[in-house]
Computed example of a mutant assay.
Amino acid sequence: MRQFLILFSVISLSLFSSDKLGKLPVYKIAVEAISQTEDNIALRDFIKEQIHSTSRGMVSLPLKGTDTKVWEFDKEGNPSPKTIESLQNLAGTDKLILVSTEDGQAVISFVDVLHQKLEYRNSLPESLSKTLVSDFLGFLDKKNIYLALSETGTGSNSQLKINSLKPTYVAGEPIRFEIESTEDNYVYVVLVPENQKGEPVLLFPNQIQNDNFVRKGDKVTIPDKRISFKAASSPSKDRIRAFASREEWKEFQLRGKKEDSFYRLLPPAVTGTKTTARSMVMVTNSLTAPIEQTPVMEWEYQILSR
């Protein structure tokens, strides 16, 4: 069971119009070949086209002097001092994709530029480079869902109310609150951690409360009293985001391990759903649309150390 600590000065309700976003929440991505060989450039261009054609990200212009920069990471994904210098020079870029072919292997690395961390690295024989790209795109779909859950703008037309959420908690104290819907809705409640390297957690529905259709006037305690959800000991600023949808989010898969209380919200590609190249473009373009188009309310609150 994972524990979470939520730190903020006062309880508040943030109101932002999703119309102000003007676009799907996606990352600004630079795709670069580690060395300018013919095979590396071909793999780089193929990945760029896949990301651009499916709207998985905003592909930035080629970087200058990429082949002379140092890209080194340890087993934990931490960059070397010279790599940190290279990352600090990447202005206006959220993520960096590095591709290379080494000893007959195609390699894809995905770097969080802001937090200077290697998030993904995988390799396959060059003959299976398209399979490698497909695996990476599934990973990117997952990241885009997390981004949409985190950044979709809230609006005053939300049909949800929250009760019993205290202004402050202490470390280790159970966190439990009540959601009320003013209309018949499918309700999705997500914990978004302050640490962007963490993943949003789907608090509702969960493995105990797997029916998330809430009728008008009904009140649901989240999480169920059979589930332990406590504040952890390390300070952080986290958010509770509640989405009210007239339609079920059928584009996504709910997945959780037996030992976990909470689900993960995943794209079909991550859970092994087969798609053709043509359908992949159509599905991906609308993958995060249900999240972006669903009214959402957000609450922030404070946990104090003991």
Rank of each mutant, 00 (worst) to 15 (best):
I108S: 08
I108E: 03
F110I: 08
L114P: 02
H115Y: 12
H115G: 05
H115M: 10
L118F: 04
E119H: 05
Y120P: 03
Y120R: 10
Y120Q: 11
Y120N: 08
R121W: 02
N122Q: 15
S123I: 02
S123A: 13
L124F: 14
P125T: 15
P125F: 14
E126A: 12
E126W: 14
S127G: 13
L128Q: 15
S129G: 05
K130G: 04
T131Y: 14
S134P: 04
S134M: 08
F136I: 11
F136L: 10
L137A: 07
D141I: 02
D141W: 10
K142R: 15
K143A: 09
K143V: 07
N144W: 04
I145Y: 03
L149T: 03
L149Y: 05
G153R: 14
S156N: 11
Q159V: 07
L160F: 02
L160S: 02
L160T: 01
K161M: 08
N163A: 11
S164P: 02
L165S: 07
T168P: 00
T168I: 01
T168V: 04
Y169N: 03
A171V: 14
G172R: 05
E173A: 08
E173K: 04
E173P: 10
I175G: 02
F177E: 00
F177G: 01
I179Q: 00
S181L: 01
S181C: 04
T182C: 07
T182H: 06
E183M: 07
E183C: 06
D184C: 02
N185F: 01
Y186L: 08
V187G: 01
Y188S: 03
Y188C: 02
Y188I: 04
V190E: 06
L191I: 06
V192R: 04
E194K: 13
Q196L: 11
K197E: 06
G198T: 02
E199L: 09
V201Q: 07
L202C: 12
L203R: 01
L203T: 03
Q207D: 10
I208D: 08
Q209V: 01
D211S: 15
V214Y: 01
V214L: 11
V214W: 01
